[in-house]
């Protein structure tokens, strides 16, 4: 549970939004030429990252507009919100410290945002 800063409406509860999953997955240019494996790759395979993930969100119970979000999935901390069509921003220095991406304390129950406050 967290707040999302909708670029059109401002900060709202996550419950108002729907997540559209991983962002920047490009639709194949020549669909008839794709093999079954390539189709499976496009349709089903996901990075499912623990750490910094680029994803799409829709303010479904609000303005109903789409936008992109950079979120740390091991803390739920939102790092950046940017518009659909923009290329993914460079995010440095926030990568998880261990391979499985556990944050410093516990299994994600304290985010860096919390600590700053």
């Amino acid at each position: 549970m967290f707040l999302i800063n909708c670029p059109y409406c401002g900060e709202r509860d996550q419950a108002e939004f729907s997540c559209g999953g991983e962002a920047h997955i490009t639709r194949p240019k020549n669909p008839p030429e794709l093999t079954d494996d390539q189709w499976a790759d496009y349709l089903f395979m996901r990075k499912n990252i623990k750490g910094i993930q680029f994803e799409r969100w829709n303010h479904s119970n609000g303005c109903r507009r789409w936008f992109n979000v950079v979120r740390n999935t091991s803390t739920d901390e939102i790092i950046k919100v940017y518009n659909i069509g923009e290329s993914p921003p460079n995010i440095n220095g926030n990568n998880p410290s261990t391979p499985s991406g556990e944050p410093i304390i516990g299994s994600g129950n304290i985010s860096t945002t919390f600590e700053k406050k």
Partner: peptide
């Protein structure tokens, strides 16, 4: 919850 997360906590809604 309707999104990817590894935090082992979900939304109160």
């Amino acid at each position: 919850d309707g999104y990817t997360s590894y935090t082992q906590r979900g939304g109160f809604n």
